[in-house]
Write a protein that binds this DNA or RNA. Structure first.
Length: 573
RNA sequence: GCCUCCGUAGCUCAGUGGAUAGAGCGGCUGACUUCUAAUCAGCGGGUCGCAGGUUCAAAUCCUGCCGGGGGCGCCA
């Protein structure tokens, strides 16, 4: 189903072509009418006629009678366009008949690897993992809904120098045999203790380095201990993922260790392309265009002077694996903004190495920090209680308290489920609704408020609509039922509903879930405007059916939209 | 020093080169025997960090400043 604005654009394009072939109509949503076309102003100079005259020529050439009720030239040469009620109603009926609510599948599906969440083994997940997990999950849902082949990859930090330290400490405290009984909560303290030892005891530090070598060379006893850390950490991560309701499963884990066997291969391939330079004993690639603080070429260190590999090597192997074995046409990295330079280096070197045929295929979806109310970064302070499990539990607890205040008639089980949906939804929406790259302040009171631009408000808007049907004992009208737009408040709602596809597409193009949030909040407020102005359960059969149709459609779009954000939409609150 | 991101109402933030820059929260004034008031309507609130430039048109694009965050060779 071609949506309203593309139909309009098509018609206008044809008209503009008669004045100047290829001219952009510059079609925009307008506050003066439904749409406005601003292209005449840009064209005036080019064709050497006054903008208003150009606008008149365009309007004269345009065939809009069947879709517009009003076409007016205004100001210096804006073309204001008002769609006819009949056209809007027909579009809306088609939308309601469409299970995808107007969102078309892409013509050329891509294989897209989304790299997100990426917790570290031997540490509990903390606030620092929240944004990657939520943004990545929302993007996975959106891109999947658009018909792409989405491959979620959870690039867990399960390899490298910390493990030498952890394993040596485990042996020291005599836990090698009973390590299976460790909980991840122990591991948090465990990590801190090992770290302390590492920093203060040179002998211990040396043993750790040797242990890393053993690990990387595949020593069986070392691997056995390592697996215990990994298994326990992932058990914890799974808990967090279940609490959050994200899509990630064990099948999505492709940790750093996975790429270990590939690292020497990468070194060989870089070498055979003449890219490697030895510098202070380290093997480096110096891609053009990068400088350090002294104005010297900036290296990507592929192999350290001690012969070990760091995460640059792993990341290169990772690109190679994703474009090669996985066959990805697009790589999406949902990684903090502080990694921008590192990723640019990796992408540049990957391109030189031939791992990235299309340099624009790798995208860094960067995000800012979560700040505490003091304005300081809310990431992992050593030993601080910023554990995600605690955070989410608190959100659910607060939501439950808020629910109880409101004398709801939900069963205890229903109430618990709703509290979960609200608490987690609030955290998710607060994170997703602010523009990704900015920092945001984590504030319980604001995100859990039932008024304003919050998750609970949207969930409430949805539940409220569903309750209309439940309490009236009426089913929603069948999809595609006729819709009437008699009242002034019905038009804006209809138009907003018709914009859903665009909102989803823009969200995907910009990798910005906040766009979808803004759309949904606008939809919810537009709906309440309609709901205030128009009584739904009226006697007139046709009007009632139409308004029920608008309600149902709004609820469906809200539910679908929230679902794309990974947020539940309870039927009842 | 270089690179990068950010700077919009008291606070938190929207804002695809287009007309008079918008929401939410807070404040003030109203609307409830509710189709769920967990809501809505109205009022007040602005040198869009500053200065140039490009353009018919700049919060938006370019340059330079100011202020803040982050990054800049063997942690990941």
């Amino acid at each position: 189903m071609p949506d309203a604005s593309s139909v309009l654009l098509q018609r206008l394009q044809a008209a503009f072509d008669t004045v100047a072939p290829g001219a952009d109509p510059v079609l925009r949503v307008s506050d003066r009418a439904d749409f406005q076309a601003n292209g005449a102003l840009a064209l005036a100079k080019q064709v050497g006629r006054p903008p208003r005259q150009v606008a008149e020529e365009v309007v004269a050439a345009a065939s809009l009678d069947d879709i517009c009720s009003e076409v007016e030239i205004s100001g210096p040469g804006f073309i204001n366009l008002t769609l006819s009620d009949a056209f809007v109603a027909a579009q809306l009926a088609a939308l309601s008949a469409d299970p995808r609510l107007g969102v078309a599948e892409v013509e050329r599906p891509e294989t897209i690897v989304i790299d997100y969440s990426a917790p570290n083994v031997a540490k509990e997940m903390h606030v620092g993992h929240l944004r990657s997990t939520l943004i990545g999950d929302a993007l996975a849902r959106v891109l999947g809904f658009l018909g792409h082949d989405v491959r979620r990859e959870n690039h867990i930090g399960d390899w490298g120098t910390p493990f030498g330290m952890l394993i040596e400490h485990l042996i020291d405290v005599g836990g090698a045999m009973r390590a299976e009984t460790f909980s991840v909560r122990d591991l948090n303290e465990f990590y801190a203790a090992a770290r302390k030892q590492f920093d203060s005891d040179p002998g211990f530090a040396e043993r750790c380095r040797r242990r890393v070598v053993l690990l990387q060379s595949g020593d069986e006893e070392t691997l056995r201990l390592w697996r215990i850390f990994v298994a326990e950490s992932m058990r914890h991560a799974r808990e967090v993922y279940e609490l959050l309701g994200v899509l990630l499963t064990d099948d999505d884990i492709v940790g750093e260790s996975f790429y270990n066997p590939l690292l020497p291969v990468v070194v060989d391939e870089l070498d055979s392309r003449g890219l490697l330079v030895e510098d202070d004993g380290a093997l480096c690639v110096f891609p053009a265009g990068f400088e350090n603080r002294n104005g010297e070429p900036l290296p990507l260190i592929v192999r350290k002077s001690d012969g070990g590999y760091g995460y640059p090597a792993t990341d290169l192997a990772c690109v190679r694996d994703r474009t090669g074995r996985v066959g990805a046409t697009r790589l999406v990295y949902v990684v903090g903004a502080d990694q921008a330079l590192h990723l640019r280096l990796v992408f540049a070197v990957a391109a030189l190495a031939g791992y990235l045929p299309d340099a624009s295929a790798a995208v860094h979806v960067a995000f800012g920090n979560v700040l505490g109310t003091g304005g300081k970064k809310m990431a992992s302070r050593s030993g601080g209680s910023d554990r995600l499990v605690d955070l989410l539990a608190e959100g659910i607890e607060r939501a439950e308290a808020a629910l109880k205040e409101r004398s709801s008639d939900l069963s205890p089980e229903r109430q618990a489920a709703t509290a979960h949906a609200l608490g987690v939804g609030a955290v998710k929406y607060a994170d997703l609704s602010t523009e990704r790259v900015r920092d945001y302040v984590f504030d319980w009171d604001r995100m859990l408020a039932f008024e304003g631009d919050t998750g609970p408000y949207l969930q409430y808007a949805h539940a409220r609509i569903r309750s209309i049907f439940r309490r009236a004992h009426l089913p929603p009208p069948p999809p595609g039922s006729p819709l009437l737009l008699g009242e002034p408040a019905e038009r804006p709602l209809a138009l907003q509903l018709l914009r859903f596809a665009e909102a989803v597409e823009v969200t995907a193009e910009t990798s910005s879930p906040s766009k979808l949030c803004t759309y949904l909040f606008d939809l919810a407020t537009t709906f309440t405007g309609f709901y205030e102005a128009c009584r739904v359960l009226v006697d007139d059969q046709a009007v009632r059916s139409s308004r029920l149709g608008l309600c149902d459609l709004t609820a469906r779009v809200l539910e679908q939209g929230l679902s794309l954000l990974g947020i539940e939409a309870p039927e009842q609150m």
